[in-house]
Amino acid sequence: MSSKKEPGVQAPKKGFSRRGFLHGVGITSGALGAGILEQEAAAAPPVNVTGLGEAPVTLTINGKPVKVNVEPRTTLLDAMRDRLEITGAKRVCDRGTCGACTVIIGGKVMYSCTVLAIDAQGKDIQTIEGLSNGNKMHPIIPAFANNDGLQCGYCTSGFVMASKGFLDRNPNPTYEQVKAGLGGNLCRCGTYVGIRKAVLEAAKELKGGKNA
């Protein structure tokens, strides 16, 4: 996502210009006999800097490109929930700890509360909304229902995505592997055992019910 052709690249705002900023830096580094930085800064064209205000960001969510105007400080979670009405990922701790906001980015499970929307451009983002198409569901969803893998439900969509991401990488897991593989998600109701059973059931289902 380093392309300079990307949307959202704006000239720096007044009052905090790159040149003025670097000039300030130059005062200290100059004292150390540097100066290379200042020379480079004077010669270099403005680089890829966005902000402070809103800027267009393009996200690829469940295979579809979506455009949204957000500030650089907006997290992927807040952009999805507050601007795009994609509310499957939940905002619970908002500090990269509980896992309720889990999505799959570039094939890997991540906390969407701890990724900036602007930093998630150019990558394939999967949310729980992408796991069902009409009545066709990823086997992990009915498996959660079959195994009482939820109670209040706040953690569920995060656990479902963490489970999906885990199964993508570990199609034939043991109970202990499931336990460790879901170590990034918390459930305050304590439905862990049901969730782990659901993941094992979904693993069998995904293999065509061979071992069911």
Binding site: S2, N48, V49, T50, L52, P72, R73
Partner: peptide, 11 residues
């Protein structure tokens, strides 16, 4: 969270 600029250098 205070607003900030986002820079994405490639070197």
């Amino acid at each position: 969270m205070q607003a900030f600029e986002f820079a994405n250098p490639s070197t």
